[in-house]
Design a protein around this nucleic acid. Sequence first.
DNA 1: TAACACTCGGAAAGCGCTCTCCCATCCCCG
DNA 2: CGGGGATGGGAGAGCGCTTTCCGAGTGTTA
Lengths: 344, 344
Amino acid sequence: MRTERLPTLEDVARMAGVSRATVSRVINGIRNVDPQLHEVVWDAVGRTGYVPNRLARSLVTRRTGTVALVVSDSETHDDDPFMGRFFADPYFGRVVGGLMSVLRGKGVQLALQIVGTDDQRKRLVGDLRNGQADGAIVLSLPPIDPLPRMLTEGGVPAVLIGRPAEPVPIDYVDLANDTGATLAADHLLARGCQRIAMISGPADVPASSDRIAGFRRSMARRGHGWVPTEPGNFTRDSGETAMRALLTANPELDGVFAANDLMALGALAALREAGRSVPADVAVVGFDDSSAAVAASPALTTIRHPLEDMAAEAARLLLARIEDPAMRVSSVIYEPALITRASA
Amino acid sequence: MRTERLPTLEDVARMAGVSRATVSRVINGIRNVDPQLHEVVWDAVGRTGYVPNRLARSLVTRRTGTVALVVSDSETHDDDPFMGRFFADPYFGRVVGGLMSVLRGKGVQLALQIVGTDDQRKRLVGDLRNGQADGAIVLSLPPIDPLPRMLTEGGVPAVLIGRPAEPVPIDYVDLANDTGATLAADHLLARGCQRIAMISGPADVPASSDRIAGFRRSMARRGHGWVPTEPGNFTRDSGETAMRALLTANPELDGVFAANDLMALGALAALREAGRSVPADVAVVGFDDSSAAVAASPALTTIRHPLEDMAAEAARLLLARIEDPAMRVSSVIYEPALITRASA
DNA sequence: TAACACTCGGAAAGCGCTCTCCCATCCCCG
DNA sequence: CGGGGATGGGAGAGCGCTTTCCGAGTGTTA
């Protein structure tokens, strides 16, 4: 039962007939200890069922073997359904999966932290500075977010997934979003589309604005100076609405690039509803290559986003920075790839 | 920078000209403290930028304000892609979202733990007993899993999501899987299907076997003593394969119940490939009402699984048990609902 | 006015661990 | 045979906090 005291180092030491220090040394394999004692100690550990108390250990070593996964959200109320959507989106899971693939092997665990208000951000940074976790992986959602700067200023090892909106000397991994958009534009153009529109994400988040910029630039270079664009918010429904608006304004449209797969799915629905066949009448390209892309019908041509790999790299980067806080700040940019399926 | 020492209680006490004890009392709002001192102390806290050290606090209070989310997997190698699939599946994210909706408000954080081997399980229980976390929410994947029993025997507050395979006196929340399957059977029958097959999950996991049992029972009661069944493993591809096999063996089939949406998606693909139209030739019912269900075309008729609510309830249950370890063991079973869309 | 009950601050004992000193051996070499 | 350097174990000082115990001061009642 929970009530009875668990064996401590002291107990093991007493049973083994040595001092606490010696047991500690044996358990941590630090310094040479007489092989005989070594054996005696391990034996006592086994007999008592001793398990080192991580908390106590962390308190003195200043290492917790834990990394925080911080989701920095712009303030909304606690019961805002947004967070629910965020977690249900494969994005979150893919990040966790990528992180764990690296952390698990190192015996590092992940603590999930969600911060919405600046007050929470402050408390979080305080906790991290106090050694609550050895470092943080940050998923920064709001367009402008003070957190990255707060972390660097607090001297907390941290790695962002997705570049910071304002320049902050902090490690990050990101996708070459503009290149991805370029790939989409080129593909649409190459298959002969003449009137191409875009369903973008919110203009103020970096990943989104890069996709817009990349797409426009690439289109302009190929003689399409004007691209009808309708913003969505990365949800399926917003994609559907945007597609309808686009269709109304540009009935002769024959190609669409949606800034993520979910919106592309919505676009597919709107096109079906409007009686346009995909890809014959209108070609559609998504972004992310999420599991929804294969599930869609027609299956989505999309831009692959190696999120798991990126998250894994972020984890490695963080571990390295924890090891050597003086390490040069670095960023790793991944290249996206076009995945051709049925929709374009 | 990280190197300079952070202010401690001691520092605040010195600045406020009182003892550590008093500062501690003020901060924790325990016992009455002279309003004057109260003010002085808070002022000192503000001036020093003091943040209590959670680790140190937990060490003495034996409370961490952390709950572990344990994913108990059957052993596979670390680089097994399975875990990746698991995280990418909306299932994981929905659980996290549901848990956080409750925990966040209480200021409790979630620590992710993955255990694959019995050795890891043992270490986990040891850590939990040592107060690494106040309790655990358990996602038990393997058909037989010693973890639930280990937890109860270790006196660790824990709540399972999904009933334990073998009877263990432990709290859990679950879905009435059999009822869900019944709903599917009734719907298929009601729309006039005559030759109905099932794509099941692995027979040895409870959620899956309950769906099989419920479906068969319901069908038998309506005069269908024999239901062609093909097992899958909850992935899209396995659903596709199973559907093909089913079609080969029973070409005249006109209804299918897949034990989850992902497999239903695969079934849809196989049916399309075989030139059967859905739902005209073959009606398809899925299970889970995941986001994939709406994205599919035709949109999937499916069984709604209130996973977020279940996870939220699990969190509440765990919090209650942590508060009162002597609380009677209880389980909460959620009722599924039929969601009618286009596929059946 | 004496006796008693409260109220509230401080001293100090831990929580379970690590790690720096320090000291006792032991060995090797001059 | 003596001295210097390894080698390896123990004592004890913390890590930053909570909390018990104590005692001083104040108020209250007979």
